[in-house]
């Protein structure tokens, strides 16, 4: 039997009640413990219950009382997809690319803002140059950090959009927009930091505003690592 066909044996409306366990299909039609295809109001006929046995108050020996009616054909698309996701999760756990990549933009955006602040106070051009190069580096390294974050969201959290992930995505986009805009402005107007025009103010604002944006992203990332 293909796994997808197992769903048809849900024990409801007079249909037979089957479940799968370790590749075998068991028939529990008519069992008092499986009324209307439901067991202890938690497990449903038509599903694979292999992973749930360790949580059960009974051992797998109870299945000896059930009749085996078929086996599961594992060569179906759904299984292959699950295997692929497991492999990707394993790969992510081994190399954890998001924690590896996210520290570069974090450090560089803070450093860029600090250098720009020093420039505005002391008017030493080396500080301005350092701020600019750090800002470019931060913007560029935001891309792999964002991509690895999306990858983690996909393999570990099935792309479920909760408040934490929504905040991380929105403010990462804000960081990228601010970063790219700031880099373009500074490329077009190399002396932009020295002026007092609204454009000069805007450039410095972009450099500084990425600090709170980054902090919001990092704060929400911390909620994932240390949930309260």
């Amino acid at each position: 039997m293909k796994r997808e066909n197992l769903k048809n044996y849900d024990g409801k409306d007079g249909r037979p009640a089957y479940f799968a366990y370790k590749g075998k299909v068991y028939d529990i039609t008519g069992s008092k413990l499986w009324r209307n295809g439901t067991h202890v109001n938690r497990h449903h006929a038509g599903e694979d219950l292999t992973d749930f046995m360790s949580m059960a108050p009974h051992a797998e020996e109870v299945l000896e009382q059930c009749k085996i009616v078929d086996t599961i054909d594992d060569e179906v698309a759904e299984d292959i997809f699950i295997d692929r996701m497991d492999r990707l999760r394993d790969w992510y756990r081994r190399f954890h690319p998001h924690p590896v990549t996210l520290h570069y933009p974090m450090g560089l955006f803070y450093f860029a803002a600090f250098m720009q602040l020093l420039y505005l106070i002391f008017r030493v051009s080396a500080f301005e140059s350092a701020a600019f190069y750090a800002f470019i580096g931060a913007t560029l390294t935001t891309i792999p950090a964002a991509v690895s974050g999306l990858f983690s969201w996909w393999v570990n959290y099935q792309m479920t959009l909760t408040r934490i992930f929504r905040m991380k995505i929105i403010f990462t986009l804000v960081m990228l927009v601010f970063g790219i805009s700031g880099c373009v402005l500074r490329f077009l107007y190399p002396g932009i930091s020295a002026g007092t025009s609204p454009l000069s103010f805007s450039y410095s604002a972009l450099v500084f505003l990425n600090v709170p944006a980054l902090t919001i992203v990092a704060f929400n990332g911390g909620k994932i690592t240390w949930p309260s």
Partner: peptide, 20 residues
């Protein structure tokens, strides 16, 4: 419900890591 989903969602990778 959204808060509960978040709690459950964050717990799953922990179980996977613990198993590993």
């Amino acid at each position: 419900l959204e808060e509960m989903i978040q709690v459950v969602l964050l717990a799953i990778p922990r179980e996977i890591s613990a198993r590993e």
